[in-house]
Amino acid sequence: MKKRNRSAMNRHRLQRVSKVGALWLLLCFLISGCGIQLGVEPAQGDAASPLPAGTKADGQLRVIFLDVGQGASQLLISPSGRTMLIDAGNNSEEQRMVDYLREYGVERIDIVVGTHPDADHIGGLDAVIDHYEVGAVYMPKIQANTKTFESLLQSIRDRGLKVKTAKSGLKLDWDEQVDVRLVAPVEQSDDSNNMSAVIKVAFGETSFLLTGDAERESEKAMLASGADVQADVLLVGHHGSTSSTSLSFLRKVSPKYAVIQVGENSYGHPKQEILDRLKKQNVQVYRNDRQGTIEVVSDGREIRITTER
Results as ranks from 00 to 15, higher is better:
residue 12 H to P: 00
residue 13 R to I: 04
residue 15 Q to L: 12
residue 17 V to M: 14
residue 17 V to C: 10
residue 18 S to I: 00
residue 21 G to E: 08
residue 34 C to D: 03
residue 35 G to S: 14
residue 38 L to E: 03
residue 40 V to N: 08
residue 42 P to W: 13
residue 43 A to I: 03
residue 44 Q to M: 03
residue 46 D to G: 15
residue 51 L to K: 07
residue 55 T to K: 04
residue 56 K to P: 01
residue 62 R to T: 08
residue 78 S to R: 05
residue 78 S to L: 07
residue 79 P to D: 04
residue 84 M to T: 12
residue 88 A to C: 11
residue 89 G to V: 01
residue 89 G to K: 08
residue 90 N to H: 08
residue 91 N to H: 08
residue 96 R to I: 05
residue 99 D to G: 01
residue 107 E to M: 01
residue 111 I to F: 05
residue 112 V to P: 07
residue 114 G to H: 04
residue 115 T to C: 10
residue 120 D to T: 06
residue 121 H to L: 15
residue 123 G to N: 13
residue 124 G to Q: 12
residue 129 I to H: 07
residue 133 E to Y: 03
residue 133 E to L: 10
residue 144 A to S: 15
residue 146 T to I: 03
residue 151 S to I: 02
residue 151 S to R: 12
residue 154 Q to A: 04
residue 158 D to Q: 14
residue 163 V to K: 05
residue 167 K to N: 06
residue 175 D to R: 02
residue 185 P to T: 11
residue 195 M to K: 09
residue 195 M to P: 01
residue 199 I to H: 02
residue 199 I to V: 15
residue 200 K to I: 14
residue 201 V to N: 06
residue 207 S to K: 02
residue 209 L to P: 00
residue 219 E to Q: 13
residue 221 A to S: 15
residue 223 L to F: 03
residue 227 A to C: 08
residue 228 D to F: 05
residue 229 V to L: 05
residue 230 Q to L: 04
residue 231 A to F: 05
residue 244 S to R: 06
residue 247 L to G: 00
residue 256 K to Y: 06
residue 262 V to N: 09
residue 263 G to K: 05
residue 266 S to M: 02
residue 275 L to Q: 12
residue 275 L to I: 14
residue 278 L to A: 09
residue 286 Y to L: 11
residue 287 R to G: 02
residue 292 G to R: 13
residue 295 E to F: 00
residue 298 S to Y: 00
residue 304 R to F: 10
residue 305 I to V: 14
residue 305 I to F: 08
residue 306 T to W: 07
residue 306 T to L: 05
